[in-house]
């Protein structure tokens, strides 16, 4: 069990009276890209948000079950969600840079978590994060320009840089390319593949092609259930469940 970075057992999520996630078990490996696919409203984003307790910010949301990261129950009352989220970073569907400079956007996380002892170290973190997010060459001359002035694809890479600057161990991505054009999407996908070397990446996507391109493991969600989970190649070429097959062949969705 400790082989897995994240292991979830019997996870149930309720939004008020709605049962959004029904008894989901999933184990996610380290240094792997895992894709969650499924039709809209199937619960894949909701499940993703339980992994770093982002659902805590929604009053009516309740989570039951057992989710462990590195063997620790993240819903234990002793766990501080703030520390958890530093360890499990997140990138959102729509690029959401803060209305600050590019530099301040990336430096925000390291600053609040106290990762840098001095300005030089902070500069170093910012530079390496931007490099890892493949934004350094475009941004290095305008670090003090507002982050909101970048193009959509650049903004999303800035958000990725911002997320990796806090040195997380897991990176959650909630449809990171849905607001981007094809070229920007390709850049981000390439980036995800690079990131796999240092993090375990969980990506929610509504694009099956994208899941096939970037992930090693794929989980198919339908109506709040985890229908099938396995090697990406197998899911796309030889699914076991008829529902997975219909979705992949375009009959539900």
């Amino acid at each position: 069990m400790t082989d897995y970075k994240i292991s979830a057992k019997g996870v149930q999520v309720y939004y008020g009276d709605t049962h959004a996630i029904k008894d989901v078990d999933v184990d996610i490996e380290d240094k792997t890209v895992t894709a969650f696919i499924g039709p809209s409203g199937c619960g894949k984003s909701t499940f993703l948000r339980t992994l770093n307790r982002m659902n805590d910010t929604i009053d009516i949301c309740r989570v039951q079950g057992d989710i462990r990261i590195d063997g620790e129950d993240i819903y234990d009352s002793a766990v501080d969600p703030v520390q958890l989220r530093a360890k499990v970073g997140m990138v959102f569907q729509k690029p959401n840079p803060f209305p600050k400079s590019i530099y301040d956007n990336v430096a925000y996380g390291p600053k609040i978590h106290g990762l840098a002892r001095n300005k030089a170290e902070l500069d170093e973190i910012v530079e390496s994060s931007l490099r890892k997010a493949a934004l350094w060459t475009e941004a290095k001359d305008r670090l003090n320009a507002p982050g909101t002035g970048l193009s959509g694809g650049q903004q999303q890479r800035l958000c990725i840089a911002r997320a990796i600057a806090t040195a997380p161990e897991v990176l959650l991505m909630d449809e990171p390319c849905s607001a981007l054009d094809p070229i920007a999407t390709a850049q981000v996908e390439e980036l995800i593949d690079e990131l796999r070397q240092s993090f375990s990446v969980v990506i929610v996507t509504h694009s099956m092609q994208q899941a096939a391109r970037v992930s090693q493991k794929t989980a198919f969600f339908h109506l709040g259930n985890l229908v099938e989970y396995g090697e990406t190649d197998k899911i796309f070429t030889n699914p076991e469940d008829p529902r997975t097959e219909s979705y992949i062949s375009g009959r539900i969705g």
């Binding site: 620790e72 002793a78 520390q83 890892k132 600057a165 161990e169 690079e194």
Partner: peptide, 18 residues
């Protein structure tokens, strides 16, 4: 593509201990 060791994750630490 770049040197990744500079921000290698810190030593493992329990989430339960603030």
């Amino acid at each position: 593509m770049t040197d990744l060791s500079s921000t290698e994750p810190k030593a493992h630490r329990s989430l339960k201990v603030a």
